[in-house]
Simulated assay, not measured.
Amino acid sequence: MSPLFELKTVDVCYGHTRALVACDLRIRAGERVALVGSNGSGKSTLLRTLHGLLPPNRGTVACGVNMRQAMVFQRPYMLRASAQSNVALGLWLKGMVWKEARAAALQALARVGLAGVAQRNAKALSSGQQQRLALARAWALQPQVLLLDEPTASLDPAAKREVEGLMAEFAEAGMTLIFSSHNLGQVKRLASRVIYLEQGRLLADLPAHEFFNGPLPPEAELFVKGELA
């Protein structure tokens, strides 16, 4: 099976800083890939590169033909409009007529348990509700691949469980997940594959069971133990 993404010797730079260094990576349909590493290791940069938001300074990024993908950011932007309109607008921009977009938006909100707040201003929702709203916006587009940047970092435990549950349901329905996380418990629960990054370099790429139970590069082992400086 052809990979959904294939990166070959990819460098991404911010000025003189190399955020990704000679990155080689393949991701196939149906995988649940967790990106882990300390702050500044390159996780967010890799997600943005996969989503086409950051072009590589060197190397190549190839993705599947006509592949549908969506991304949820750590702090998703909310329009000063109802939750329903926040979802409907993305569908309308994709070419759906407004009446149908609003109906589809209600279905998406129901899918993430937010039907009861459809008419509330999105900016007035709690952080957990806003994150679920961002998931509804993404799910409404029916992506094959969902990229998530620290999707539960700022949420309370109950909201984290809700978002994790939705991610697991999306994966079970066949969606490919690629997400960054500092929460290793979350990685154990959700990931089938773990990628460890350090200073922009991909140092480990293993099935989740092997990552948590097998030998690792020294930096990755220190990170898992919580001892990385």
Score class of each variant (00 low, 15 high):
S192H: 14
L106N: 13
A229L: 09
S85C: 10
E169Q: 13
A70F: 01
V36R: 00
K160F: 10
A110V: 11
A22T: 13
E31S: 14
R137N: 01
M71L: 11
Q119M: 13
Q131L: 08
H16R: 15
M175D: 04
M167N: 00
A19D: 07
R75K: 15
V163K: 03
P56N: 02
R201P: 02
L155R: 00
S38D: 13
L206K: 12
D156N: 06
Y77I: 13
A173M: 14
A105F: 07
A124W: 07
E164N: 11
L89Q: 08
F73D: 06
A153L: 03
Q199F: 11
N213I: 01
E221L: 15
L106D: 11
A29M: 13
P3V: 03
A62Q: 15
L228C: 05
L91M: 09
S85V: 10
E6F: 04
W92M: 14
L177F: 11
L184N: 08
S41I: 02
P217K: 09
S2K: 14
D205M: 10
F211Q: 01
G30D: 03
K43Q: 11
R26W: 03
E172G: 13
H209M: 07
E219L: 12
G113Q: 09
A173W: 07
P217F: 07
V224K: 15
V187R: 00
L202Q: 00
P218M: 12
R111E: 15
L135C: 05
L216N: 12
R189L: 11
P157N: 14
Q130Y: 07
Q119G: 12
Q129F: 08
I27F: 05
L46G: 00
P143C: 09
I195L: 15
L91A: 01
L93F: 11
E100F: 05
L7Y: 07
K8N: 11
I27M: 09
R132K: 10
T60Q: 14
F223Q: 04
V163Q: 00
L35A: 01
V117G: 05
E150P: 00
A62Y: 08
G128F: 06
W98D: 08
A62I: 02
V145Q: 01
W139N: 04
N213H: 15
A191D: 03
S38T: 13
L141M: 15
V87H: 02
G42D: 03
N57L: 10
R111K: 14
G214W: 09
A110R: 15
S82E: 02
L133T: 02
S44V: 07
L203E: 10
V187N: 06
L47V: 06
R80C: 09
D24W: 04
P215M: 11
L93M: 12
Q107N: 14
G128N: 09
A19K: 02
S181I: 07
S181F: 10
L141A: 14
F211L: 06
K160S: 12
A104N: 07
T9H: 11
L46E: 05
